[in-house]
Write a protein that binds this DNA or RNA. Structure first.
Ligand SMILES: [Mn+2]
Ligand SMILES: [Mn+2]
Ligand SMILES: [Mn+2]
Ligand SMILES: [Mn+2]
Lengths: 224, 224
DNA sequence: TTATAAGTTTAGACAAATCTAAAAATAGTA
DNA sequence: TACTATTTTTAGATTTGTCTAAACTTATAA
């Protein structure tokens, strides 16, 4: 049908993310915040996206992404995350460096390019931040993940991702080797401030609640 | 100082190419043709490029690219050609497929990305079409190339590039294995239509003047 | 050398995406 | 319920890059 402009792609991606993976309805001001623009500009754009049937929009009632719109959003997210894998695994960037570049690369339009990139990278299922990569049909691994802050003393977990994607946070975690795939065990949780003492391979260190709340984990299981 | 928009980058690249590698002055209509736009639009843009000191422009007198403008153009050309190498050598696209994708990829802004891509590709000196890749300072291998149509019977040559970059032509050459690096010897040149009989490894075939005029070669030298 | 053709610039308009300020609708609360 | 605060939309501009049509400049050639 229509093909979205770069700006329309960015709006659809933002709306998709704000509606936590495509379900609930999103209001104008939250889109404005996430797009770093004004509510007035968002209203203008919502009308256009609605005309093209990528969202359902009623004045004052918020917006819900349509199946069509979701397809566009997932296509962009797929490209974004595959390029992030390329940048870290092949060009050896650190995980906190790749997001801005991927924001540009995700708009390169060729479907064949992304198909071959996916193949070249070995069909990765997750990006460097632990976020799942949608396949060509939009399907992806589901999150059965929970926060490290909800973990229990004495238990062993595997890091699967983060909820804060800021450069500052990612850089901080990398210093401690706290990356997706790494095993952590909780030695102790302090009653006073809910900070925790964790063990990562040979090292032991202290994580504030601030930090542990933003790390996603799954239970450790010996094989696979 | 300023950083060019995607459109400005495309104009500067076109002007650079039209002035055969940065020397002679270029007129409005040739820019319009190469950008597939109107002379009026070009005039509008020339004013902007001139304000930003990327070109010297005097009304009705044509335009010459400045040192600054040349630097911008060479940066884009470097990115374009490196991405073309990536697409052919790594993602295994054919040489006639890569140009359109490179037209988009060349505008991805990160300098660090292109530095690492260059390194990953092994600092290639030529793109898949035989065009030289400028280094970070804008320097590149010079063309001591000439047309196959000027070659002599009995002589052996190495293909170094093409002057027609159209998909149709590139596809045609690939069918015969006429790619940069390949050795050809001229068996015979027909008096009547200047077509030539050439030998490429075990195969012998006929090339029209139309074709031989668009193939660039250098003399064959046994070593290197 | 003057008429005509070719090339170039200006004038005025438009679409996309944005903004500020003002008006309108909805939500929260006394 | 009625007032106020918050959110959202509209109105009117602005910027970038584009267009057509008209005016202007330069080249060509009788
Ligand atoms: Mn990212
Ligand atoms: Mn990511
Ligand atoms: Mn090209
Ligand atoms: Mn090329």
């Amino acid at each position: 049908m229509y093909q979205p402009t770069v700006t329309e792609e960015n709006y659809l991606k933002a709306i998709y993310h704000l509606s936590n993976t495509g379900t609930k309805s999103v209001n104008t001001s939250s889109i404005a915040t996430s797009m770093e623009t004004t509510a007035a500009s968002v209203t203008d754009m919502l009308r256009k996206l609605s005309d093209k049937e990528w969202i359902n929009y009623e004045k004052y009632k918020g917006v819900k992404i349509t199946r069509k719109g979701e397809k566009v959003a997932l296509g962009i997210i797929r490209k974004h995350r595959l390029w992030e894998v390329f940048l870290t695994n092949i060009l050896e960037f650190e995980w906190e460096e790749v997001h801005q570049m991927a924001e540009e690369l995700e708009h390169v339009s060729s479907e064949e390019l992304i198909k071959r990139l996916d193949k070249f990278l070995g069909h990765p299922k997750f990006d460097p931040h632990g976020d799942p990569i949608p396949d060509q049909t939009g399907k992806m691994e589901s999150h059965d993940k929970f926060n490290l802050s909800a973990g229990e003393p004495g238990e062993k977990y595997i890091i699967t991702g983060v909820t804060d994607h800021s450069t500052l946070f990612l850089k901080h975690l990398r210093k401690y080797g706290l990356l997706p795939g790494v095993t952590v065990s909780i030695a102790e949780i302090m009653d006073y401030d809910k900070s925790m003492l964790v063990k990562v391979s040979k090292d032991k260190f202290h994580l504030s609640l601030e930090v542990s709340k933003n790390i996603l984990i799954k239970k450790y299981v010996s094989s696979k």
